[in-house]
């Protein structure tokens, strides 16, 4: 059974008085557990909006989203907060760490939101940072880390609560191609070793080529023909 299902999602935003953007116009998809999927498409095709809906950050005007068989589009905001904390992991493009917190504190923050405290919190965070190859730099602030290192911290943060689904929005957007390949390599390893489902929004074809499957989007719908 698919772990992530989107059914006919529609969403429009109002920018000006008579200026509507139809970001999603009936997008549907289904992703199996353990898949490593890229969502690709030109800017404005609605891929980020779709990812936000899968991540319970935004709600559609129409349509339904199911995560692990549960319809999340009808849950209350507090329940969505809980799902984001415990069942989902997020990785964003650049600058997505809290600048005032060290690497390990950034990772521990996510554990804290999931209700993990005390020694378990720091142990888990250290283990995860070790796993992404950053055990040497856990006490550094984000400003003291390179772009690739920052993104590794973000990966560790996304995975610290061992969520079933990890969502990444342009995770390599600010990185050079070598570092980019490294980051995707780490994510792929974690996908294989831990069996987590990864959904990446990207417009980098190098990244797309390393995924199990590419979901292409155009004008707010999933382009079935290209899939």
């Amino acid at each position: 059974m698919a772990i992530v299902v989107a059914e006919n999602l529609k969403k429009s935003y109002r920018l000006g008085k008579n200026n509507f953007v139809h970001a999603l116009q009936g997008a549907s998809l289904a992703i199996e557990p353990g898949e490593f999927v890229a969502i690709m498409g030109p800017s404005g095709s609605g891929k980020s909006t779709l990812l936000h809906m899968l991540g319970c950050l935004d709600d559609p005007d129409n349509g339904r989203v199911f995560l692990s068989g549960r319809e999340v589009t009808k849950l209350r905001p507090s329940e969505l907060t809980r799902i984001r904390a415990r069942e989902l992991g997020f990785i964003f493009q650049g600058f997505n760490l809290i600048p005032a917190l060290t690497a390990i504190e950034n990772v521990m923050l996510a554990a804290e939101y999931a209700g993990v405290n005390g020694r378990a919190k720091s142990e888990r965070a250290e283990k995860m940072l070790d796993r992404v190859g950053l055990s040497e730099r856990v006490r550094h602030l984000p400003s003291e880390l390179s772009g690739g290192e920052q993104q590794r911290v973000a990966i560790a943060r996304a995975l610290v609560n061992e969520p079933a689904i990890i969502l990444a929005d342009e995770p390599t957007g600010d990185l050079d191609s070598t570092t980019s390949a490294e980051i995707i390599g780490i994510m792929r390893d974690l996908n294989r070793a831990m069996g987590r489902t990864f959904i990446l929004v990207t417009h980098d074809h190098e990244v797309g080529s390393k995924c199990d499957r590419i979901i292409r989007m155009r004008d707010g719908v999933v382009d079935e023909a290209a899939g």
Partner: peptide
Amino acid sequence: TREIGIKKAIGASNRR
């Protein structure tokens, strides 16, 4: 603002 957005995305409740 962006930091608050990240915190909410990774599961911070409004109360927090």
